[in-house]
């Protein structure tokens, strides 16, 4: 927080508090600027997709929300409360572990390479967090995990270890595992990028159902423009660590205003 001219509130208040707010957030690796004074709001229940060339900072945005990356400047708020910082004597200071653990309970994430726990069955993967972190009884956690596995179409494979599951199946279990923690914000980081083309649909169907049936706030990074168009409320095009252009899918994809957006989209459409 080097820029003294920006006022970072201790808390966001009012009728329209966004579920996620990035305020002037920057991230650098040495000389490389990954995020450059980013401002981004995501409303509660909104589905926002981030697209852009590799190295544009898209994944970093999600990783920061999951507290997997530290930020260099700015503040991120979740559900009105600061995530990267906390209040101390009326001032914002860097969040400590306890604060981050409290805030992290509102956030769930699915990864490109699934990252299921290989020594646990699909069911155990979905019970681990509820039992170990939330302190829910095993019976209750099992019941809830089975419901979620049912929802993602994996109930029949609940006793299988990840090594016995296909990529699409593993990713569906990973979505159930994240949902078992009852997050308010779900992050999908290129969840179909490591999948064979014929199983991508299993995973996108699950995400589509989530969007239709739940009021979760979701942020998704993807290269699948068609899928993004279909389910997003808004698409943000990232370039050089900033939002170059954003808007509803039809506006951004069909009538992009910026040159860079046009170039990126035509390159993606050509590739497809």
């Amino acid at each position: 927080m080097t820029d003294k001219t920006i006022h970072y509130p201790l808390k966001l208040e009012g009728p329209d508090v966004p579920m996620v707010r990035f305020m002037n957030v920057s991230k650098r690796y040495g000389d490389l600027v990954v995020l450059d004074r980013l401002d981004l709001d995501v409303a509660a229940g909104e589905m926002v997709t981030i697209i852009g060339p590799s190295g544009s900072g898209k994944t970093t945005v999600l990783r920061m929300i999951m507290t997997l990356e530290k930020i260099d400047e700015g503040v991120i708020y979740i559900d009105g409360e600061p995530l990267t910082h906390m209040e101390k004597n009326g001032k914002l200071v860097r969040a400590n572990q306890a604060h981050m653990r409290k805030m992290r309970s509102k956030i769930g994430m699915c990864f490109q390479h699934f990252n299921l726990f290989p020594h646990m069955t699909a069911l155990e993967n979905c019970m681990e967090g509820p039992v170990q972190v939330l302190g829910i009884s095993k019976d209750e956690a099992r019941e809830r995990a089975m419901e979620l596995l049912e929802m993602v179409g994996m109930a029949e494979k609940s006793d299988q270890h990840p090594s016995r599951l296909s990529g699409g199946q593993q990713q569906r279990v990973a979505i159930a595992r994240a949902l078992a923690m009852r997050p308010k914000v779900m992050l999908f980081d290129e969840v179909t990028s490591a999948l064979d083309p014929e199983v991508i649909n299993e995973v996108t169907t699950v995400i589509r159902n989530l969007v239709d049936q739940h009021s979760l706030t979701m942020l998704m990074v993807t290269h699948q423009i068609g899928f993004a168009r279909e389910i997003s409320d808004r698409i943000c095009f990232f370039f050089g660590g900033r939002i170059e252009e954003q808007g509803p899918p039809t506006d951004l994809l069909d009538e992009p205003q910026e040159d860079r957006t046009q170039q990126f989209l035509s390159a993606v459409f050509d590739a497809n």
Binding site: M66, T67, L68, R101, R104, S105, I107, G108, M109, F111, H113, N115, L116, F117, P118, H119, E128, G129, Q132, V133, A174, R177, A178, A180, M181
Partner: peptide
């Protein structure tokens, strides 16, 4: 690293991550 991040994403403490995820593997 993915195992550590997955454990972080379900909000496990470092001690629980060692005990339940890392050491068994």
């Amino acid at each position: 690293k993915g195992q550590w991040e997955a454990a972080r994403a379900i909000n496990m403490s470092t001690a629980a991550t060692y005990r339940r995820i890392i050491i068994p593997q």
